[in-house]
């Protein structure tokens, strides 16, 4: 894909998602927020994936962000949605930073498994915490938007949608820049052969650590947004099935572009909603079947479709 097209997409991205928010029917707004929130997690996974790393425990940071939103207002008088999301994201980022010292030493399936182990320990702690409602979880307080508390619930939802869109857009911009930087471009090299990268004088471990922190921060932001939208947090957000779903959406989306995770996330949420509605006895089957179909026939994910249609017009003048 041409760099010009990529940056165009990013520039027009925010107004387009925001405009969508104004015209979407009420029920779609919620789906939109959840898609953006989970899209943020997937964006982080995409970053790791480009280095050849897969986390089967990203629910850990997603859940950490969500629980921060739930717990924070009980101790501090903060109800502003954007502020809550930022603080939760930073907190999740710190958690990722701490765990990163261990995680960065591992690759391949061991990385995936260690992430899984950490997330399951966190899950166990939450289930044992009766003051946090154990598996029932607890409800999140109502949020405000820059000092403004909307009367109508649907206005509230749209405000949250705008917040989510802004956060997601900034995250995309950031990741896009990072991928263009030297460290970002090293991703592929680390995936292909780490020793060579080290011989070039770069620390692969440090690069991986940085990615873990970024992915954790974005997962925390996603979890925080989801918690506000749902109005409730519980340990299922941390469970390995949830983490598996994030990896699933990463594959569905493809890692060709920073927009892909958001797009894939929307497609997945729509797919699941309708699978549940029209095939209540077979929705897992439909979802699993779609994953298989994508892996077999569309190895680049949904994004490769857009890329291909674009390539046709570009006369094949494209680069990844």
């Amino acid at each position: 894909m041409s760099p010009a097209f990529r940056s165009n997409l990013l520039q027009i991205g925010l107004p387009v998602i925001l405009a969508l928010g104004l015209f979407m029917p009420d029920w779609a707004i919620f789906l939109g927020i959840i898609s953006l929130a989970k899209g943020l997690v997937v964006l982080g996974l995409m970053l790791l994936w480009r280095t050849g790393l897969v986390s089967f425990g990203q629910g850990l940071f997603y859940g950490a962000g969500a629980y921060m939103v739930g717990i924070l207002p009980q101790y501090l008088p903060i109800t502003d949605a954007l502020l809550l999301v930022l603080i939760s994201a930073v907190a999740a980022g710190f958690l990722a930073f701490a765990l990163g010292f261990l995680l960065r030493r591992y690759r391949e399936i061991f990385f995936a498994m260690l992430c899984l182990a950490f997330s399951m320990i966190f899950f166990g702690i939450l289930v044992k915490s009766e003051s946090l409602g154990s598996t029932d979880g607890f409800n999140v307080v109502e949020t405000s938007y820059l000092g403004f508390v909307p009367e109508e619930p649907i206005v509230m939802q749209r405000m949250l949608y705008i917040t989510a869109a802004v956060v997601a857009w900034f995250a995309c911009l950031f990741v896009n820049r990072y991928l263009g930087s030297t460290m970002g471009r090293l991703s592929r090299a680390i995936k292909d052969n780490e020793l060579r990268v080290e011989y070039l004088g770069f620390s692969a471990k440090r690069a991986v650590h940085f990615k873990i922190v970024i992915a954790g921060t974005m997962a925390g932001a996603g979890g925080a947004l989801a918690a506000i939208a749902i109005g409730h947090v519980d340990p299922e957000m941390v469970w390995w099935i949830q983490s598996g779903e994030f990896v699933f959406v990463t594959i569905l989306s493809g890692v060709g572009n920073v927009i892909a995770p958001l797009l894939g996330s929307v497609v997945f949420e729509i797919l699941r909603t309708f699978a549940i509605e029209y095939a209540p006895q077979a929705w897992q089957f439909v979802v699993g079947g779609c994953l298989l179909a994508v892996i077999m026939f569309l190895p680049g994910g949904l994004w490769s479709l857009i890329e291909r249609s674009k390539e046709g017009k570009d006369d094949g003048n494209s680069s990844r």
Partner: peptide
């Protein structure tokens, strides 16, 4: 399918 799904389904 969890509470996220329940809230989505309720709104639907």
């Amino acid at each position: 399918g969890g509470t996220t799904k329940q809230v989505t389904e309720y709104r639907n």
